[in-house]
Protein backbone atom coordinates (compact mmCIF):
# COMPACT_ATOMS: atom_id res chain seq x y z
CA UNK A 1 0.00 0.00 0.00
CA UNK A 2 2.84 2.36 0.88
CA UNK A 3 4.51 1.71 -2.46
CA UNK A 4 1.29 2.49 -4.31
CA UNK A 5 1.03 5.80 -2.51
CA UNK A 6 4.68 6.71 -3.29
CA UNK A 7 3.95 6.25 -7.00
CA UNK A 8 0.63 8.08 -6.76
CA UNK A 9 2.27 11.03 -5.04
CA UNK A 10 5.00 11.23 -7.65
CA UNK A 11 2.54 10.98 -10.55
CA UNK A 12 0.23 13.60 -9.09
CA UNK A 13 3.03 16.06 -8.49
CA UNK A 14 4.17 15.28 -12.04
CA UNK A 15 0.71 16.29 -13.31
CA UNK A 16 0.89 19.57 -11.42
CA UNK A 17 4.55 20.30 -12.21
CA UNK A 18 3.90 20.01 -15.90
CA UNK A 19 0.99 22.10 -17.10
CA UNK A 20 -1.03 18.94 -17.68
CA UNK A 21 -3.18 19.17 -14.56
CA UNK A 22 -3.97 22.87 -14.95
CA UNK A 23 -4.82 22.57 -18.63
CA UNK A 24 -7.03 19.61 -17.90
CA UNK A 25 -8.81 21.30 -15.01
CA UNK A 26 -9.36 24.58 -16.83
CA UNK A 27 -10.53 22.89 -20.02
CA UNK A 28 -12.83 20.56 -18.11
CA UNK A 29 -14.38 23.35 -16.04
CA UNK A 30 -14.61 25.55 -19.13
CA UNK A 31 -16.39 22.97 -21.27
CA UNK A 32 -18.74 21.74 -18.61
CA UNK A 33 -19.49 25.30 -17.44
CA UNK A 34 -20.21 26.48 -20.97
CA UNK A 35 -22.65 23.71 -21.71
CA UNK A 36 -24.25 23.75 -18.28
CA UNK A 37 -24.89 27.49 -18.10
CA UNK A 38 -24.64 29.18 -21.44
CA UNK A 39 -24.93 27.08 -24.55
CA UNK A 40 -27.32 24.66 -26.30
CA UNK A 41 -29.36 22.66 -23.81
CA UNK A 42 -28.24 24.75 -20.87
CA UNK A 43 -29.96 24.99 -17.56
CA UNK A 44 -31.95 28.12 -18.41
CA UNK A 45 -33.26 26.61 -21.61
CA UNK A 46 -34.53 23.47 -19.88
CA UNK A 47 -35.73 25.64 -17.04
CA UNK A 48 -35.29 22.85 -14.53
CA UNK A 49 -33.02 22.65 -11.50
CA UNK A 50 -31.12 19.55 -12.58
CA UNK A 51 -27.52 18.60 -13.27
CA UNK A 52 -28.42 16.50 -16.33
CA UNK A 53 -26.83 19.05 -18.68
CA UNK A 54 -23.59 18.93 -16.71
CA UNK A 55 -23.51 15.14 -16.57
CA UNK A 56 -24.14 14.87 -20.30
CA UNK A 57 -21.19 17.09 -21.11
CA UNK A 58 -18.91 15.59 -18.45
CA UNK A 59 -19.70 12.16 -19.91
CA UNK A 60 -18.13 13.28 -23.20
CA UNK A 61 -15.32 15.50 -21.92
CA UNK A 62 -13.97 12.81 -19.63
CA UNK A 63 -14.05 10.37 -22.52
CA UNK A 64 -11.59 12.60 -24.39
CA UNK A 65 -9.55 13.86 -21.45
CA UNK A 66 -8.78 10.60 -19.72
CA UNK A 67 -6.81 9.08 -22.63
CA UNK A 68 -4.83 12.33 -22.79
CA UNK A 69 -3.93 11.97 -19.12
CA UNK A 70 -3.10 8.27 -19.18
CA UNK A 71 -1.26 8.15 -22.50
CA UNK A 72 2.00 9.12 -20.84
CA UNK A 73 1.78 6.84 -17.82
CA UNK A 74 3.56 3.71 -19.03
CA UNK A 75 4.48 4.62 -22.61
CA UNK A 76 6.87 7.33 -21.45
CA UNK A 77 8.43 5.13 -18.76
CA UNK A 78 8.98 2.47 -21.35
CA UNK A 79 10.45 4.87 -23.91
CA UNK A 80 12.95 6.51 -21.57
CA UNK A 81 13.90 3.29 -19.77
CA UNK A 82 12.64 4.44 -16.38
CA UNK A 83 10.35 1.42 -16.40
CA UNK A 84 13.45 -0.73 -16.01
CA UNK A 85 14.64 1.56 -13.23
CA UNK A 86 11.30 1.23 -11.40
CA UNK A 87 10.98 -2.51 -11.79
CA UNK A 88 14.42 -3.12 -10.31
CA UNK A 89 13.30 -1.28 -7.17
CA UNK A 90 11.39 -3.17 -4.47
CA UNK A 91 8.00 -2.52 -6.05
CA UNK A 92 5.75 -4.92 -7.91
CA UNK A 93 4.15 -4.30 -11.30
CA UNK A 94 0.73 -4.39 -9.68
CA UNK A 95 1.71 -1.67 -7.22
CA UNK A 96 3.17 0.44 -9.99
CA UNK A 97 0.04 0.20 -12.12
CA UNK A 98 -2.24 0.75 -9.14
CA UNK A 99 -0.28 3.90 -8.24
CA UNK A 100 -0.63 5.27 -11.75
CA UNK A 101 -4.33 4.44 -11.84
CA UNK A 102 -4.95 6.11 -8.50
CA UNK A 103 -3.09 9.30 -9.46
CA UNK A 104 -5.23 9.84 -12.56
CA UNK A 105 -8.38 9.01 -10.63
CA UNK A 106 -7.48 11.54 -7.94
CA UNK A 107 -6.97 14.22 -10.56
CA UNK A 108 -10.43 13.47 -11.98
CA UNK A 109 -11.90 13.62 -8.49
CA UNK A 110 -10.25 17.01 -7.98
CA UNK A 111 -11.80 18.20 -11.24
CA UNK A 112 -15.21 16.94 -10.15
CA UNK A 113 -14.90 18.55 -6.72
CA UNK A 114 -14.26 21.85 -8.47
CA UNK A 115 -17.63 21.53 -10.22
CA UNK A 116 -19.45 21.39 -6.89
CA UNK A 117 -20.17 25.17 -7.07
CA UNK A 118 -22.37 24.40 -10.12
CA UNK A 119 -24.36 22.03 -7.94
CA UNK A 120 -24.58 24.49 -5.05
CA UNK A 121 -25.70 27.28 -7.36
CA UNK A 122 -28.36 25.17 -9.05
CA UNK A 123 -29.56 23.90 -5.69
CA UNK A 124 -30.01 27.48 -4.50
CA UNK A 125 -32.13 28.56 -7.48
CA UNK A 126 -34.55 25.63 -7.55
CA UNK A 127 -35.65 22.28 -6.24
CA UNK A 128 -32.94 19.76 -7.11
CA UNK A 129 -32.94 16.00 -6.62
CA UNK A 130 -29.89 15.71 -4.35
CA UNK A 131 -29.77 11.93 -4.54
CA UNK A 132 -29.61 11.98 -8.32
CA UNK A 133 -26.74 14.47 -8.26
CA UNK A 134 -24.60 12.41 -5.90
CA UNK A 135 -25.39 9.27 -7.89
CA UNK A 136 -24.41 11.12 -11.03
CA UNK A 137 -21.06 12.13 -9.54
CA UNK A 138 -20.51 8.57 -8.36
CA UNK A 139 -21.32 7.37 -11.87
CA UNK A 140 -18.79 9.78 -13.38
CA UNK A 141 -16.11 8.48 -11.03
CA UNK A 142 -16.94 4.86 -11.87
CA UNK A 143 -16.90 5.63 -15.57
CA UNK A 144 -13.54 7.36 -15.14
CA UNK A 145 -12.18 4.20 -13.47
CA UNK A 146 -13.16 2.21 -16.56
CA UNK A 147 -11.58 4.67 -19.00
CA UNK A 148 -8.43 5.04 -16.91
CA UNK A 149 -8.12 1.25 -16.99
CA UNK A 150 -8.41 1.31 -20.78
CA UNK A 151 -5.99 4.24 -20.99
CA UNK A 152 -3.32 2.61 -18.83
CA UNK A 153 -3.62 -0.56 -20.88
CA UNK A 154 -3.24 1.40 -24.13
CA UNK A 155 -0.21 3.14 -22.67
CA UNK A 156 1.39 -0.18 -21.75
CA UNK A 157 1.35 -1.63 -25.25
CA UNK A 158 3.20 1.17 -27.03
CA UNK A 159 6.05 3.47 -26.17
CA UNK A 160 4.60 6.21 -28.31
CA UNK A 161 2.22 8.49 -26.45
CA UNK A 162 0.17 9.41 -29.50
CA UNK A 163 -0.36 5.76 -30.36
CA UNK A 164 -1.39 5.15 -26.75
CA UNK A 165 -3.84 8.07 -26.88
CA UNK A 166 -5.45 6.90 -30.10
CA UNK A 167 -5.59 3.28 -28.98
CA UNK A 168 -7.38 4.31 -25.81
CA UNK A 169 -9.85 6.40 -27.82
CA UNK A 170 -10.51 3.59 -30.28
CA UNK A 171 -11.15 1.07 -27.50
CA UNK A 172 -13.15 3.68 -25.58
CA UNK A 173 -15.38 4.63 -28.50
CA UNK A 174 -16.77 1.09 -28.55
CA UNK A 175 -17.98 1.36 -24.99
CA UNK A 176 -18.91 4.99 -25.26
CA UNK A 177 -20.83 4.96 -28.45
CA UNK A 178 -20.55 2.02 -30.85
CA UNK A 179 -22.02 -0.71 -28.63
CA UNK A 180 -25.06 1.50 -28.04
CA UNK A 181 -25.39 2.04 -31.76
CA UNK A 182 -25.04 -1.68 -32.46
CA UNK A 183 -27.63 -2.55 -29.87
CA UNK A 184 -30.23 -0.49 -31.70
CA UNK A 185 -29.43 -2.41 -34.92
CA UNK A 186 -30.12 -5.80 -33.40
CA UNK A 187 -32.97 -7.43 -31.59
CA UNK A 188 -33.09 -10.12 -28.93
CA UNK A 189 -29.92 -11.47 -27.36
CA UNK A 190 -27.44 -9.33 -29.29
CA UNK A 191 -29.41 -6.20 -28.64
CA UNK A 192 -29.34 -6.75 -24.90
CA UNK A 193 -25.68 -7.87 -24.99
CA UNK A 194 -24.57 -4.71 -26.78
CA UNK A 195 -26.84 -2.66 -24.63
CA UNK A 196 -25.17 -4.08 -21.54
CA UNK A 197 -21.73 -3.24 -22.96
CA UNK A 198 -22.73 0.38 -23.61
CA UNK A 199 -21.28 2.78 -21.03
CA UNK A 200 -24.01 5.35 -21.66
CA UNK A 201 -26.73 2.89 -20.69
CA UNK A 202 -25.09 2.28 -17.30
CA UNK A 203 -24.21 5.90 -16.71
CA UNK A 204 -27.63 7.29 -17.53
CA UNK A 205 -29.38 5.10 -15.02
CA UNK A 206 -26.96 6.33 -12.37
CA UNK A 207 -27.40 9.96 -13.38
CA UNK A 208 -31.13 9.50 -12.85
CA UNK A 209 -30.39 8.44 -9.29
CA UNK A 210 -30.45 4.66 -9.48
CA UNK A 211 -27.41 2.77 -8.29
CA UNK A 212 -27.60 -0.80 -9.41
CA UNK A 213 -24.82 -3.27 -8.57
CA UNK A 214 -24.70 -4.37 -12.21
CA UNK A 215 -23.65 -0.85 -13.25
CA UNK A 216 -20.93 -0.79 -10.59
CA UNK A 217 -19.73 -4.23 -11.61
CA UNK A 218 -19.75 -3.19 -15.27
CA UNK A 219 -17.45 -0.18 -14.81
CA UNK A 220 -15.16 -1.83 -12.30
CA UNK A 221 -14.69 -4.92 -14.45
CA UNK A 222 -13.62 -2.80 -17.42
CA UNK A 223 -11.12 -1.04 -15.14
CA UNK A 224 -9.91 -4.37 -13.78
CA UNK A 225 -9.54 -5.89 -17.26
CA UNK A 226 -7.61 -2.86 -18.48
CA UNK A 227 -5.20 -2.86 -15.55
CA UNK A 228 -4.69 -6.61 -15.75
CA UNK A 229 -3.98 -6.25 -19.46
CA UNK A 230 -1.40 -3.58 -18.66
CA UNK A 231 0.22 -5.85 -16.08
CA UNK A 232 0.43 -8.72 -18.56
CA UNK A 233 1.91 -6.55 -21.27
CA UNK A 234 4.65 -5.32 -18.89
CA UNK A 235 5.37 -8.83 -17.71
CA UNK A 236 5.79 -9.89 -21.34
CA UNK A 237 8.57 -7.34 -21.78
CA UNK A 238 10.53 -9.07 -19.04
CA UNK A 239 10.45 -12.52 -20.58
Amino acid sequence: MKNIWIITKKELSGFFDSLMAYIMLIAFLGFSGLFTWLYLADIFLINQASMMAFFAVAFWTLFFFIPAMTMKSLAEENRTGTLEFLLTKPISITQLIAGKFLATLLLIVIALVLTLPYYITIASIGQIDHGAVWCGYFGLILMSCAYIGIGVFASSISNNQIVAFLTALVIGIFFHFLFGLLSSQFTGFFSSLFNYLDAGYHFESMARGVIDSKDVVYFLSIAFLGLTGAKISIEKKQL
Binding site: N3, I6, K10, G14, D17, S18, T80, G81, T82, E84, F85, L86, T88, K89, P90, I91
Partner: peptide, 23 residues
Protein backbone atom coordinates in the same frame (compact mmCIF):
# COMPACT_ATOMS: atom_id res chain seq x y z
CA UNK B 1 21.12 0.85 -15.96
CA UNK B 2 22.88 1.26 -19.27
CA UNK B 3 21.61 4.61 -20.48
CA UNK B 4 21.00 5.91 -16.99
CA UNK B 5 17.26 6.59 -17.26
CA UNK B 6 16.16 9.43 -14.96
CA UNK B 7 13.00 11.45 -14.43
CA UNK B 8 14.41 14.51 -16.12
CA UNK B 9 11.56 16.79 -15.09
CA UNK B 10 12.31 16.27 -11.38
CA UNK B 11 14.80 18.27 -9.31
CA UNK B 12 17.76 16.22 -8.04
CA UNK B 13 16.69 16.29 -4.38
CA UNK B 14 13.08 15.32 -5.13
CA UNK B 15 14.27 12.49 -7.31
CA UNK B 16 16.57 11.11 -4.64
CA UNK B 17 13.82 11.43 -2.02
CA UNK B 18 11.51 9.49 -4.33
CA UNK B 19 14.05 6.70 -4.84
CA UNK B 20 14.80 6.62 -1.12
CA UNK B 21 11.14 6.21 -0.32
CA UNK B 22 10.82 3.44 -2.91
CA UNK B 23 13.78 1.67 -1.33
Amino acid sequence: PENNPLYTEMPVVDYLLFVGELQ
